[in-house]
Design a protein around this nucleic acid. Structure first.
Lengths: 151, 151
DNA sequence: CTCGGAATGTAGCCTTGGCTACATCTTCCG
DNA sequence: CGGAAGATGTAGCCAAGGCTACATTCCGAG
């Protein structure tokens, strides 16, 4: 069908810009850190609030099996974000706390922005959970400015 | 992203609300359809623009190896979103076209909203790529309303 | 002090989405 | 017409993030 000719040099309005590829790549890698961010923030919440973060609690809050939570906690440890001795609960390292604070702040801004543009509370909370991991610093700053100015 | 941050936290044990778990679960499953959505939209773009969608182009645009693209195209076929005969390019089914249209519309609204709240173009385009997959219908509607209102 | 239930941890399996390496097909050009 | 080059497809590997099933540890009753 001549539909697969060797690649002609130019392709009209859709050049194969590396820009686009890099955007997708960024979105992919963001997704990979998302889980760690969720864990770290949740652990921080649990520690601040109840004094301890136990795998079972974490698992229940995240809606996964406890084995899954434990496995991910292992990854947290490997990445230097958390410490945990067997049967002794999970704690955050300096790096973990820092990350948690950043993530929590970002989450708040995202939710507030969604509310400011008229998203209902329930949807705002729910969608923010997924959205926040893809909000870059630049975008976050813009959100903050928008909120300060008008919201 | 533990969702209790913006409000005064309950002092005492955090309740193990199923709400939170379901939010995380939703974010997780959204992430799973995200890839398919990206592929479908890109294929639609390529078809509309150049008349054909070839695995190599798709791979380059997404920034992945061609083998990866081919594997995912296989998944698209399994899910009834695309058709492809070996060495003959990829085409969308009715369902695929429908999905593509929906995804494209959503993408536009998300970018427009980001721009409307002051996010620079580059960041808006880049972040939208990740954000759009987590924007629920309710939130999308709110975005549209905000934009129409002259946001 | 012992025992049983709950919490914790381990092992092994699955799918997704990447990759590289290699095999095969098409097309185009000499 | 016959290759060679490039596109396409296949195979096999890896890590992440789920799960279930089973093993171990802890702790509070009794």
């Amino acid at each position: 069908m001549a539909s697969i000719p060797s690649r002609p040099a130019v392709h009209g309005a859709l050049p194969a810009e590396p820009t686009q590829a890099s955007r997708f790549g960024k979105a992919r890698s963001a997704q990979s850190s998302a889980l760690l961010e969720d864990y770290v923030e949740l652990i921080s919440d649990l520690l601040n609030d109840g004094g301890e973060a136990r795998p079972t609690d974490i698992a229940r809050r995240l809606g996964v099996a406890h084995a899954t939570a434990i496995k991910t906690i292992g990854r947290l440890k490997r990445e230097g974000l958390a410490v945990a001795k067997p049967y002794r609960g999970v704690f955050l390292t300096e790096a973990g706390e820092t990350l948690a604070a950043r993530v929590r702040a970002r989450h708040r801004v995202v939710v507030d922005l969604l509310l400011a543009v008229g998203v209902p509370l329930e949807a705002a909370e729910a969608d923010a959970e997924g959205i926040e991991h893809h909000v870059s610093d630049v975008t976050l700053a813009a959100f903050a400015t928008f909120l300060k100015r008008g919201g």
